[in-house]
Structure formats: structure tokens, C-alpha cells
Simulated scan of single mutants.
Amino acid sequence: MTPDSTGRIRTDIAHNARVWNYWLGGKDNYPVDREVGDQVVAMYPSIGEVARADRAFLGRAVTYLAGEAGVRQFLDVGTGLPTVDNTHEVAQRIAPDARVVYVDNDPIVLTHARALLTGSPEGVTEYIDADAHRPDRIVEAVRPILDLDRPVAVMMLGILNFVLDTDEARSIVRTLMAAVPSGSHLVLTHPTLELGGEGNAEAMEFWNKNATPPITARSRAEFASFLDGLEVLEPGIVSCARWRPPAADAAEGADAAEVAQFGAVARKP
């Protein structure tokens, strides 16, 4: 979020972290966020489903990583406002000694994170004020907190869509993944105009004229390019709602409703 010239948080323009919070049913938002959020819903009614599916995907991915994969370190880039089942809560329920570092550069997120993101006594939960556009600075900032000689799960959910240049987005991913060892994982979600998301084009255009930061959708091929050199885990690149859905759904033979948000988890060999 960009402060005004006095350093105050602007409440006259909608911001993604607050609008996303509104779509998830949170209270950390302002009238302008709700107004723009409602306009986007009117243009693209399934955006709330996308937000909820993205959050549920985070829970399933972290559950797998902290459980079956045995990962004990998480770097969550583009944290957003805390809601329910944040990364550290899911990870530390399974592994109380898990170390989680959140990264964002939004002052309102920083305030809420420091107040709300308290972890288990056995583990570590920290917040770093840093910009995803400067991955080198993120790496240096986490060195005192995470052991970069041991596997790290790099979480980038709904963040690369705010990096408008695809080459720059690839470079960010490469820099972060180059800093972590074999056995580390990358967890990604990203909006798309595929998977039934064609109707989102108008909503994104409206967003870019009325809110901040600007956003872009990407194709499956562009999304896949972020995973180059990594082993993409089953079921591959899918709608995030359909990445390893709950066992109860699978037992009933019901497919989760597809949302226009790619999701994938990949391992660094």
C-alpha cells in the first residue's frame, strides 16, 4: 500500500490486501475497499470463490509440506492481512517447531501481522518488511531466521500477478529458489483468464483503474514457466480448488468446483 506524502495509510483508494480480506469475510477494510470489491463481484461473481479456494489450497499445501514432506521452514512472500488458518497456524499444528517468516511491504499488513501472528513457543513466527520485487533483499533478511542449508517451502500465493513483467516475475522466483537447497518446495497460485476465467478480464481492467496495486492474469504456459527446473508434484498444474481436494470429496466422487486460479506445488531436486 502506498502511503501519502505524510506517510499515512491511504483510505481513499482500494487496496488488494484489504479487498481480499473483505472477500474472505474479514473486517480489516474500509468503505472504498468494499465498494470496489462489490463492483468486481458484480462483474465477476466468482471472485469470492477464488479467494476462498486460494485460502483452502494454502491449508492443504502446508498440511502436506509440514506433514508428509517433513518441511520445517516456511517463507511466505506476499502475506496479506491475517485471516484464519494462516501458514504458521497450519504448520505449527502439525510441527510445533516449524519456523515461519512472513514477507510483505504493506504498512497495514505489517501492523496486523505483528499484533496477530503469534506462533507456538517451540517454533518461530517472524515478519519481514520487504518488497517481492527485491528478492535479493528478502534472502538476506531471512538468513538470520531460517537455515538456508535446510529445506524451505517458499509460498507465493497470489503475489506474482502483481509483478506485471513476466520476465521479472520469473527472475524473482529463480532468485528465491536459488537461495534454498535441494528438498525445498515452491507453492504458487495465480489468476488466469483460462479455467472459465474469461469474464475476469473486464473486472481486472476495472481494478487497475480504481485500485492498487495493478494486477495481471497469466496463461498456463506462463504459469508453468515459473516452475522450470522443479519437480511439479501431482496432480500438476490445476485449478487451486482441485489440488488434492479433501478426502471426503474424493470419497464421494465429487470434483471441487473449478476456479480461475492456477495452483501448484513443486520440489527442488
Rank of each mutant, 00 (worst) to 15 (best):
A217N: 14
E234I: 01
F226S: 10
V238D: 05
L195T: 00
L227W: 06
G236M: 05
V232W: 00
P214I: 08
G199Q: 01
E205M: 07
A217R: 13
E234W: 03
R220Y: 14
S239R: 04
L227S: 07
T192M: 03
G236Q: 01
E222W: 10
L233K: 06
A221T: 13
E194V: 02
R220F: 14
P214Y: 14
E205S: 10
S219D: 11
L193P: 04
P235N: 04
R220I: 11
E202W: 07
M204D: 09
L233V: 06
K209I: 05
T212K: 13
E194P: 02
W207T: 11
A217I: 10
G229T: 05
L193E: 00
L233E: 07
E205K: 12
I237F: 05
V232C: 02
K209N: 11
F223H: 13
I237L: 05
T212F: 15
F206W: 13
F226I: 09
E198N: 01
F206T: 08
S225H: 09
A211H: 10
L233T: 07
N200E: 01
A217F: 12
E202P: 05
P191H: 04
N200W: 06
E194G: 04
E194H: 01
L227H: 00
R218Y: 14
S239C: 03
N200F: 09
E234L: 08
G197Y: 00
L227E: 04
V232G: 02
